[in-house]
């Protein structure tokens, strides 16, 4: 006896095997990312006022990446439809575009967004020293507005060696715009367009600092969650790209000649996974970039 329903649907369930499999897999993926998102909620609700940062990510780039992913979700459906109509060349083109979109997303993420964070610097000011840095923080103004206080000064670190060298007593920071004019709401985050750190320098005494690092996963729980979730999401994008490439290369042509419906099924299953990866990003984007 051979295993039935690998390509054609079982009459009473209306499904072929792999389709059942992928939906079950996606259910478990929902729970996996659900666990991470619930950690995000848990940690964010637990954070002390002012300790959950806002607007540190580059919104236009994130928006662009969102558009790229959504476009790729459309092209993968077009690729599948082309296969269903037995138009192999069109399938090749659309699948090629999908793969390119996936790669573009990863390149933007790994070659631009993450490194930009690694070069950004933040220093958490000790509660006792907040008064001293009032000109940068503008907490009196925030208090009168009923807003949570600022406890961190961020920007471009001019003396990198200060991170390791104990003999250097202060950090030389090219301030992010908001700290140059802290009471002006127009300067506040989030900005839609990315605003680079200014040339205005602040000297922050190490003795006044609780903790100062570049924007790494160790910097705070916000970045810990950000890097973990986008990292895991990136791995999923990579997985999708690998599977698509496999179906796009000569293997796809061979399977197409043997059993075009089988290839269409595989593309459908891989496409379902791709839509899920897309959907996760639709949650990641507002949670980290906008809220």
């Amino acid at each position: 006896m051979e295993i039935p329903y690998t390509v054609t649907a079982r009459p009473d369930t209306g499904l072929w095997n792999a389709k059942v499999g992928i939906w079950l897999f996606l259910a478990s993926e929902v729970m996996l990312f659900g666990g991470l998102f619930s950690a995000y909620i848990f940690l964010r609700l637990d954070a002390e006022p002012g300790y959950w940062p806002h607007g540190l990510l580059n919104v236009p780039v994130g928006t662009g990446n969102t558009a790229i992913l959504i476009a790729s979700s459309v092209t993968v459906v077009l690729a599948w439809a082309a296969l269903k109509m037995r138009q192999f060349t069109r399938y090749k083109i659309y699948m090629g575009i999908t793969i390119l979109c996936g790669v573009a997303f990863l390149v933007v993420k790994l070659a631009y967004e993450w490194p930009q964070k690694f070069e950004h610097f933040g220093a958490y000011i000790k509660p006792s020293a907040l008064e001293k840095y009032e000109p940068y923080l503008g907490n009196k103004h925030l208090l009168s507005e009923g807003l949570p206080p600022r406890v961190e000064i961020t920007g471009h670190l001019h003396n990198h060696e200060a991170l390791h060298d104990a003999s250097i007593k202060d950090y030389e920071v090219g301030l992010d715009p908001i700290y140059t004019d802290p009471t002006n709401p127009k300067m506040d985050r989030p900005h839609f367009l990315y605003v680079p750190p200014t040339e205005k320098i602040a000297h922050i005494d190490k003795a006044d600092v609780d903790r100062a690092t570049m924007f790494l996963p160790t910097h705070n729980t916000y970045f810990a969650t950000y890097f973990t979730i986008t990292g895991l999401h990136g791995l999923h994008v990579l997985g999708g790209v690998i599977v698509f490439t496999y179906l796009w290369l000569p293997f796809g042509s061979r399977l197409y000649r043997q059993n075009p419906e089988h290839l269409a099924n595989r593309v459908e299953v891989a496409g379902l996974f791709w839509h899920f990866v897309d959907l996760v990003w639709i949650f990641v984007f507002p949670l980290f970039y906008l809220l």
Partner: peptide
Amino acid sequence: AFPPLESAIVMQLMDRVAGTSF
């Protein structure tokens, strides 16, 4: 039920290896 634990394990791994504070 296993995937949420997997996410927790990934976070503990991050805590131990990458120095995060989940």
